[in-house]
Design a protein around this nucleic acid. Structure first.
Lengths: 222, 222
DNA sequence: GAATAAAAAACGGACGTTCATTTTCTTTAT
DNA sequence: ATAAAGAAAATGAACGTCCGTTTTTTATTC
């Protein structure tokens, strides 16, 4: 009574999902047939149904696995941020987001597929309550920065940090997927510098700004 | 030899395109059949082909007409901006972008369809060289603001203005289409205030900031 | 009654899924 | 050691449906 090992099943599912993902991204979900996937994964049509109940469930499986990968990468990006509102760290956040977008642009296309064909069912949690999540991660750092007088009077760090995060994402997504080549009129490095500066000057207190100006300004041209 | 008037043809095409657009948005392009469109527009299946060559051409026709509508609205939004870097005007830009996104969310879904199914063929021009376009529209205003000393030393207004524009767009798109309900942890008004403040403090010179603080700060809480 | 418009029917093919069949391979009996 | 057994896994033909488009038929209007 032969039965595939869990590893063998996982490996085969990986093959199938890799092929499916590539096709979904290249031609969309509905335009990709089960026969396409079978051919791409070098598996018979019928055999697909030994691993997945429906075509939809292949899509869902891809998303679920990808989401955990992205979540982990995001976690490690946030983990290396000790002082979230410090300009150098904001810039590094931007650079890391850029890497994430460029190395996993597939993922974001899947998100658009999800928006269009599944009412964003699977990706909803990506943005829902994101500021609260940042508050959970960096809440004490935000409070400490405020207590130190790093921030301008009346600035709530959480939404600003979220806005910076979103702006970085949007910048690289537009560059990668929407054909806005150098849409800020700057290369990526200059764009990162420019956006970082805006958020630094936009939130830091004057005393902290002058410190920032002395130390980092030279390196953030553009 | 009866022949429909141009107006009658246009009216019927409008009916068809309205139905098609609604369906494309609700269930995607490939998931929408010509039979669906025919039923939605209360037209026979065969008759569709008296007005359009293919299903693709219906999509293209919708996009073309919609693009001109959006272009005009954007033009009028920009036309009422006399001083692009002034905080009050940035905020108004944000509010207008919000209206544009919310009133025409269909349009932006079509853009995602275009990204996925047509490699963004029809929407490419939307973001390509956008900063240069702003430079053409506001170049003299940017230069004047710089000459007046409104801006911090070394700030190039064009990419910052573009970034603000993109940030507003992204904020409302995430709110409307991606299920990020109050993803900045603020309501729309507060979010506009918060973002406007960041860009104001992020770019204005100190002399101009103090003027801004006196006049507008009270109204931009959040 | 001639030309246009609309409707209906038909076409060939592709779709997601099912299913009868064959292949594969571990286990058991010899 | 090997053959038989038998379930798991893989296959590809088959099913019924729906697809975009074309063709044929009917209705409308001058």
């Amino acid at each position: 009574m032969p039965k595939l090992s869990a590893a063998a099943i996982r490996s085969k599912k990986d093959t199938i999902e890799d092929a499916a993902r590539e096709l979904f991204i290249k031609q969309g979900f509905h335009a990709t047939s089960m026969r396409d996937i079978a051919k791409g994964a070098d598996v018979s049509l019928g055999n697909l149904y030994n691993y997945y109940e429906t075509k939809d469930s292949i899509f869902e499986s891809i998303i679920d696995r990808y989401l955990t990968v992205i979540d982990e990468q995001l976690k490690s990006i946030f983990a290396e941020i000790d002082e979230p509102m410090e300009p150098a760290n904001l810039r590094k956040l931007g650079a890391n987001v850029g890497k994430l977008v460029n190395e996993h642009s597939d993922f974001w296309l899947l998100m658009y597929i999800d928006v269009l064909e599944f009412q964003n069912r699977h990706f909803r949690k990506m943005f829902d309550g994101i500021t609260d999540r940042f508050r959970k991660i960096f809440g004490d750092k935000f409070a400490a920065a405020e207590a130190r007088g790093d921030l301008r009077m009346g600035v709530d760090a959480a939404p600003v940090f979220t806005a910076a995060y979103m702006q970085f994402f949007n910048y690289f997504l537009v560059e990668k997927l929407f054909g806005g080549n150098r849409h800020l009129g700057l290369d990526d490095e200059q764009a990162l510098n420019c956006l970082t500066k805006v958020f630094a000057y936009g939130t830091l207190s004057e005393q902290n700004l002058s410190r920032f100006k002395r130390s980092a300004n030279k390196s953030l041209s553009g």
